[in-house]
Amino acid sequence: MKSPVLALFALGALVALPAAADPFRLIVSDLETPLVPNSVMELAQQGGYFERAGVEVTFVRVQQTPLAIAALQAGEGEMANISVDALMQLAARGGTDLRAVLSPNKSLPFLIAAAEGIETVADLEGRSFGVGRLGSLDHSLSMTVLQRAGVAVDRLDIVSLGQPNVRAQALLAGQIEATTMSIGTLISLPDPEAVNVLLDADAYYAAAPVVTKVNAVPQAVLDTRRAEVEAVIEALVLASRDFAADGASWASAMAEARPDVDRDDLDQLATLYAQSWSVNGGLQRDELEYTASWVAQSEDFQGLDLPSLEAWVDFGPLDAVLARIGVDDSAGMDSLSR
């Protein structure tokens, strides 16, 4: 079966980017402001960050990365928030000029949770562990994390259960003994304290620093609208720094953007995301190199050569912004690596 990314590569080869238009269009794959740090994009607009940076931004909303890439290649936007694996596949096939210039939300907020009585990751050996499916992102990434934590993953009883909420319910019902879930899934449980968090999201990312999403632009946009690209980057970095400095400000902004979500849940999320903000733009060479090596092991990369970072990343616009606004080294997160 042809990869959807390969199909999009073929489509992109036939579609030329039209002349730049005003305003600057940002393609996102969330149909509403998400309950994760990626929300910084919508909240930057809501909070006037783009306006202060001197750029007018509008959002183009699609569902999932393949449609975001198709829209970007069809000239329906200037920048798109897309998955790293899809961008790398396009680069590996040699026919794309898309470059990552920012990662407003580097990682999925995954954590390892277990049933009561399981207190450490060492206690997981021989236990049942729920995954979405064999080979899924949560499965492969969690096995990497657990291996680095010293767990003999070949001694786990892997159970395929589907979506995170299904796995969480199975954990509460005693059908499995541990699983991977997101921070959002955890706080949505009737009693989050009924499970033990063995590795929180920060420890999970530290064990396997895989950058999952980036904001990418075509070379033509970099050539013709670079000042706007840098303005968007500046706005998102400054918003991220403000939310890192004051988590309550994120919760308040989200309460305005998502009045359907309980404020107590937003306050709890703000605390859990305290170390998750891309205060230096989220493009760190060491993390991207680790990500590339990890992504290259997937089935989608069989028969493909690993592209160089320069084939899908351009540090230039972000570095120009950091030269103007300075590097944030006080928060202990998103440390600059070049």
Rank of each mutant, 00 (worst) to 15 (best):
L8W: 11
G12C: 12
A13H: 14
A16N: 15
S29F: 15
P34V: 12
S39K: 00
V40Q: 03
L43C: 06
E51H: 15
V55P: 00
V57T: 02
P66F: 02
G77H: 05
V84D: 03
A91E: 08
R93N: 13
D97E: 10
L102R: 01
N105S: 15
K106L: 09
A114P: 13
E119I: 14
A122V: 07
L124V: 13
R127G: 08
S128L: 05
S140E: 13
A149R: 05
R155K: 13
D157S: 12
Q163N: 14
P164W: 02
V166E: 03
A168P: 10
A168H: 02
Q169F: 08
L171N: 11
S182G: 12
G184T: 06
T185K: 10
A194M: 01
V195T: 10
V195I: 15
D202L: 09
A203L: 03
P209V: 07
T212Q: 11
V214P: 00
N215S: 12
V217Q: 10
Q219G: 10
D223E: 12
A231S: 13
A231E: 07
F243V: 03
F243I: 00
A248K: 01
R258L: 07
R263N: 14
D267I: 12
L269H: 01
Y273P: 01
Y290C: 05
T291H: 11
S298F: 09
Q302F: 08
L306Y: 02
L306Q: 02
L309K: 03
W312V: 06
W312Q: 07
V313G: 04
V313S: 05
D319R: 15
V321Y: 08
A323H: 04
A323G: 03
R324I: 06
G326Q: 01
